[in-house]
């Protein structure tokens, strides 16, 4: 298991993702990117779709990527990495490459849950050997906090504003992790930026499997969530503690919940610290809406517990 010391040693040997990018101060995305890259000792090629990470790390002629990296468009990162991986397989067969190379996608929730879902599903079904990391910050942050299918119910987004008639996003968030798991790929997990060593461990476990691997990482956006810029870790941690974002794995179809909060912390505790949910604590219908959000969190948690019970590692 890669300890923090091991990760640090690897970064001292060679920085894979440098400073000098123009992501917001306090952005959680680089924490995930650096941890994932440091958790893979082999050479890595990375693809990213359009998004905050891409725009802020690759402004010509500068780039924060000190590993081979490619961006093509918004909806196709999984297809692009399919091509890179296919070329690798042929060139290895032809004896033109000897090194073991690993393939990673870093994509936002827009490029994964929404516009990139078809390309992702195709690449998963075809069985390419790559790790797809979704930096899920729960909205289209790069274009100005528009709602995505990952945006939680009631959250304010610029295309789902809190209005007199409709209080933020009316729909529940999509459960993409389960949709990916339904592809029957060898490794699927949820992680959070507040638990980076857990993430590093998951990456290491994932890389033991040949084929597609997927990790959905809750990645705080202080700007879009309207929280203080030093709050990324605390925010994600509270999402885990309230069971809003369970840390779990589906390894070869077997469920394992990595962390079960001992106490039942109401989701309200997480919601009330974020500007995007402020209206729930101001408007009269807020109480009822919070109850609905809690009911959905509970429903998903219970379902996950049942899945672990029925299809657990020991089961």
């Amino acid at each position: 298991m890669p300890s923090i010391k091991v990760l640090a040693e690897r970064e001292e040997r060679g920085v894979r993702f440098t400073g000098g990018h123009t992501l917001c101060a306090g952005c959680a995305e680089p924490m995930v990117v650096r941890t994932v890259l440091n958790a893979i000792p082999d050479p890595v090629v990375v693809a990213s779709p359009t998004g905050c990470l891409e725009v802020a790390t690759s402004r010509f002629p500068g780039t924060a990527w000190n590993v081979p990296w490619i961006h093509v468009a918004f909806e196709n990162a999984a297809a692009v990495i399919s091509g890179v991986e296919a070329a690798y397989k042929v060139l290895r067969k032809k004896g033109l490459l000897d090194k073991r190379v690993r393939f990673v996608v870093f994509a936002g929730d827009g490029g994964t849950y929404d516009i990139g879902l078809q390309a992702l599903s195709g690449a998963l079904e075809r069985g390419h050997d790559f790790l797809y990391v979704c930096l899920n910050n729960e909205a289209y942050m790069n274009t100005g906090v528009q709602r995505s299918s990952a945006t939680p119910k009631c959250a304010a987004a610029t295309t789902a504003p809190v209005g007199e008639a409709i209080p933020g996003k009316p729909q529940e968030r999509k459960d993409l992790t389960e949709i990916v798991a339904a592809h029957g790929i060898p490794y699927v997990a949820q992680a959070a930026v507040s638990h980076l060593i857990d993430l590093a461990n998951k990456v290491e476990r994932a890389m033991n499997y040949e084929g597609p691997k997927f990790i959905n990482v809750l990645t705080t956006c202080p700007l879009g969530w309207r929280t203080p810029r030093d709050s990324a870790i605390q925010q994600a941690k509270q999402a885990v503690e309230t069971r809003y974002w369970p840390l779990y794995e589906v390894i070869e179809g077997r469920y394992k919940i990595n962390y079960k909060p001992k106490e039942h912390v109401p989701v309200e505790e997480w919601l009330k610290t974020q500007g995007r949910f402020r209206h729930l604590f101001r408007d009269p219908q807020g109480k009822e809406l919070i109850a609905q959000i809690q009911a959905e969190v509970d429903r998903r948690w219970e379902l996950l517990l049942k899945k672990e019970q029925c299809f657990g590692v020991g089961g």
């Binding site: 400073g19 780039t63 924060a64």
Partner: peptide, 11 residues
């Protein structure tokens, strides 16, 4: 472009 150049270009 060659990798890892942002550090020198963007302070």
């Amino acid at each position: 472009v060659a990798g890892g150049t942002a550090r020198d270009l963007n302070k």
